[in-house]
Design a binder for these strands. Sequence first.
RNA 1: GGCGCCGUGGCCAAGUGGUAAGGCGGCAGACUGCAAAUCUGCUAUUCGUCGGUUCGAUUCCGACCGGCGCCUCCA
Length: 473
Amino acid sequence: MSDFRLYNTLSRQVEPFAPADGTTVRMYTCGPTVYNPAHLGNFRTFLFEDLMRRVLALRGWTVRQVMNLTDVDDKIIKRALEQGKTISEVTEPVIVVFHRDREYLRIQAAEAYPRATDFIPQMIALVERLVSRGVAYQADDGSVYFAISRFPAYGRLSRLDTREIKAGARVLQDDYTKENAQDFALWKAAKPEDEATGAAWDSPWGRGRPGWHLECSAMAMDLLGETLDLHCGGIDLIFPHHEDEIAQSEAATGVPFARVWSHGAFLLTEGAKMAKRVGNVSTVQGLREARFSAAALRHFVFNTHYRKELNLSEEALEASRQAVRRVGDFAGRLRSDTALALGGTPELARVAEAAVVRAEAALFDDLNGPEALAALFDFIRQANAELDRRGGDRGSVERARAAFDRIDSILDIVPEREEADSAFAEWIEERIEARRVARGARDFAAADGIRGELTARGVTIEDSGGETRWKLG
RNA sequence: GGCGCCGUGGCCAAGUGGUAAGGCGGCAGACUGCAAAUCUGCUAUUCGUCGGUUCGAUUCCGACCGGCGCCUCCA
């Protein structure tokens, strides 16, 4: 079994990774804030995490992944207020959309999707713990803050000098409620809009709601224990979100919050970070309507290493669409009865198994998706050539199928075959038979006419090996 | 201003101190009645620029140019 290596944001190095108990990877992944459907930039991170969990499982570990759904925050409250709704009335439909998009992209379900609002007692308990330890305090405004001056390790993950202030940035001189400008809210005193939208709870510090960072610490520790094996998220979460999670968790428990931190890079559009506030987002729904398959989108994302920025463009998406079409054609060929009947060669099995070794080594080396894809495409080219030889060996075809399935069980980039309903399929078969007869009589004008009819209805035919196959699209 | 990332063929994109994976696209050929699919060959003497270290650098160091990100609630 190969070694598994992963880049750790804490050390800024690729290092060997294994779960603490040797069997189960306890993995926490920051999920979406559900006020608005997530865009492909968000999903790039979730796809990176999907690749992560599949590779961890391939390596032989059990994966216990938790992804939170942030269902209470400023933007949600703002939206609820605008629409005269409660926060749950805003978030419920968005959560439905999130899972629909997630499933479309073939992102495996995490073991748990906890919602912040279901963990208020755990969050309050965590704040109490911090207050009792003297690292949190209630300010004049009623909110409870974490005192970063009492957590010396603050800034270790982000490597930001805590004293640095953005040049030209206004310093809020009148912000006297906090002891230190960089102290962050653990518990926010309720405002009228919080009460109006159902975003306020009772607490030892009065009515209020949790600060953003608090939910992740409380839910992660409740569901996975005080020390996680792996904590993932988008690179923008390093500061302040993850830095603050570390501070509040470790100040409470005294033990490391996560052994390894892994962050995915951004998706850019038109050279700028894809973000709702920039207005350059592509939604999964939109891409779906543009007929980009899950397979194509997965290929597009995995063809760039997760730690490198990826620029979305129509041309690149189109290239991925063509690439997975090739994968799909090959999968269809390899899995066909004809392939088995014609058989393969010893070389077919050899290249197939070499591809598995190469792809797995790549994935175990800090999730090198592009290299794994290269292994797959080399395999496809070589295997097609071997299948052309019709070597008669069924066993090699079966071994090639197993190898292909093993690689694709991780990447999952075979496009869904469009199915024809039975009446349509019957008509297609009838037309192909008529064309066969015409070709037999060397009446090519008639045969081409029939092909034209099929093409007009979206059916592509392929004559190979003495038989005619068809596909939609 | 601080911290950090990136710059590889027409486009996308791996990679290594020892002489450039893969995909898309293009060109030519094979197969085919013609297509489609598939295969074969060609498509970067070169890895932003200029220096340095080295027997040797795309890979290490420095400077510069260009692009991007984070710096309090954004995956």
